[in-house]
Amino acid sequence: MSMEPPVGLTAMPVTKLAMITTLVVPLVASIASYKHIFLLQYDPFLQTYHQYYRLLIFQFCAINESDTVILALIWYLFRHLERLLGSHKYLTLIVLSWAYTTLGIWGLNLIWNAFIGQYKWLQWNNFSTGSLPIVLSLVHFYKEYTPQIYEWNIRLLGPRGGASSHNDNKREDKSAVEWKINDQFLLNGLILLLILNQGFAGILCGFISWMCGIFIDKGLLPGLDHWRIPFVSYFISQGPPTRANVAIAANAATNTAAARATVEAATAATGNGNTGNSGPTSLPLRGSSTTPTNTSSAGDDEPGADEPARPLGVQFLDTFRR
């Protein structure tokens, strides 16, 4: 497995589904002026109106536009997880997280409000909006199983006295602040923004969800080890997004002979890599290599090999171009 994931969402159906849901549901809801059904609060909705369906749907739509965008970005960054676990297991994990976090948050909310929340000002009333609980439950898996690839330091120097010390970088400065930042800092920042954006409810629900993630991983909340969501294999049939599978998916889109040839080469290459010793002999013959820079170079000799698929979106754009 290479260090860089394939760019884009080809062969990542679950990530694609999550991103589309995150973006499309709020859009449609606001056009239809039905956004309020995704609002969940203890006081009027659960306690007085008994609208428990809100518990089922509140994670599908973020009320604020900023939350929507942040969540979509986080889902995109989480495509490492789909690569790691495979689409089917990833989908199972998402559904399990959804169920456990919803139950956990609701249960704790009930307990809190039954004992401590008797007083109006101590009542836990607000919940987070959007898929924040699922995302925070997945954060545990991301941190646990995704390797850190690189890191760098940022040194913030305090104001210097004069020009004399300005050029003297080597000298240790006591006032210098050094930050070590790794490749996951974008995700960390987004998660932090997401939580802080929703205030106290975000912190609380986020923490509970994170614990849910840990428990799912440790097996305390059962399901991930033995159970998979049935009947969805058709939609996510291509398996984990390895390079060969990506090529297969691309092939399904283009379905040209040249592309098929590329795929065969790629499959052969990865097949070699998986079965045999990964020595230099098993390197692909026709240039379909494991480095991401030249994935499309396999079919260079054939015309149309690098001809992209023309899905509906591209056809739309072609209408303007031609």
């Binding site: 002026s33 309020h36 059904i37 609002l39 009027p44 909705f45 109106y49 609208q51 809100r54």
Partner: peptide, 9 residues
């Protein structure tokens, strides 16, 4: 509810 829809019954 008419004034400010929240899904009241």
């Amino acid at each position: 509810e008419l004034n400010w829809p929240l899904g009241r019954p």
